[in-house]
């Protein structure tokens, strides 16, 4: 039997490639996602289905056919450090390999988050500064704020270095950033407007990375056409904003920010590898990074070596069930 035309696997309908992807293990699924653009697009919904974010389960927990029936595997793209948000929505850095835990400034240390009570008198947080909420009230219970507030987190080095370690946090509302040194009480807001009105902060921050070579964080902005009204798709991202401009704001904390454009994406990804940055985000909408939201007690028994690029942890089924 011969095919009537040359097969074009890159063009098969998304629900078909999703059928294929759903029976793959996570490592296979990740590799498949770089085969071609349309397959990459198909991975995102598949990952959302397979890696649900719930209040109960750590999202870095994958089961894999290669494992024994009563084990699961945990993957970390960094040297063991991951960022997690606890039940109070406070961030911690956790080392899966050593069990070390480093508390980051509390959620109320963010400029727009304050403690309050919800309409039933329960402890809650009010997330201010949302232009879409006219009365300034945007109430979340502690357990849920973490699901919406945190987009991604980047580290300049291992949190065990104490105040040497600068943590860059991309958070709600879209395009907002704060940073802190380990040991700080509060997050320091990074405010773009004071420096450059043309800065595309409203286009949103998609990702960042710390370059050890330059000692700066690189931040990648979305080229959302909303940025400059009227220019629409003709919008060309600002190529580079002088790091010095942002350094002026940040030098006392030594976190310098630099903007790069979309064309430098590859550059960014490679920089990302050189840094110790480990992403955390909670909305599951980005196919290329890991989601981590887990109570700190989640990181228990370990297996395998803590090589950069991968770490394995054995997770008894009953332990996973109670987390």
């Amino acid at each position: 039997m011969e095919a009537s035309h040359h097969p074009d696997w890159s063009g098969i309908p998304e629900d078909l490639i999703a059928l294929v992807m759903r029976v793959l293990d996570i490592p296979d699924l990740l590799r498949v996602s770089s085969v071609c653009a349309s397959w990459r697009a198909a991975v995102s919904p598949v990952r959302r289905v397979r890696i649900p974010i719930t209040n109960a389960s750590p999202c870095l927990l994958y089961s894999c056919a290669a494992d024994e029936a009563d084990t699961a595997t945990i993957y970390s793209p960094s040297s063991g450090w991951i960022l997690a948000a606890d039940e109070e929505s406070n961030l911690q850095a956790l080392n899966q390999l050593t069990g070390a835990q480093v508390d980051l400034p509390p959620v109320t240390g963010l400029y727009h988050v304050e403690s309050c009570f919800d309409d039933q008198g329960r402890p809650a947080y009010n997330l201010g500064d949302d232009p879409d909420v006219p009365d300034g009230k945007d109430i979340y219970i502690p357990l849920e704020l973490r699901l919406y507030l945190y987009h991604r987190v980047y580290l300049s080095c291992s949190p065990s270095a104490g105040a040497e370690c600068v943590v860059l946090l991309l958070h709600k509302h879209y395009g907002k950033m704060s940073f802190a040194r380990v040991g700080d009480d509060r997050w320091t807001r990074i405010s773009w407007k004071e420096h450059n009105e043309r800065f595309p902060y409203s286009a949103g921050c998609r990702a960042a990375a710390f370059s050890k070579k330059d000692g700066v964080f690189y931040v990648l902005f979305g080229n959302d056409s909303e940025w400059i009204g009227g220019e629409g798709s003709n919008y060309i991202p600002t190529r580079t904003v002088s790091p010095a401009r942002f350094a002026a704001r940040c030098t006392m904390r030594a976190a310098r920010i630099k903007c790069i454009d979309d064309n430098l994406r590859l550059h960014l990804q490679i920089e990302c590898l050189r840094g110790d940055g480990m992403m955390v985000f909670a909305d599951g909408s980005h196919p290329t990074s890991s989601s981590v939201l887990a109570p700190s007690s989640a990181f228990v028994v370990l297996r395998g070596a803590g090589e950069v690029g991968g770490a394995g942890a054995v997770w008894p089924e009953e332990a996973a069930a109670v987390l």
Partner: peptide, 10 residues
């Protein structure tokens, strides 16, 4: 780039 980023999956 993907291979660099997700070395463990390779």
């Amino acid at each position: 780039a993907h291979m660099l980023e997700y070395g463990w999956a390779y």
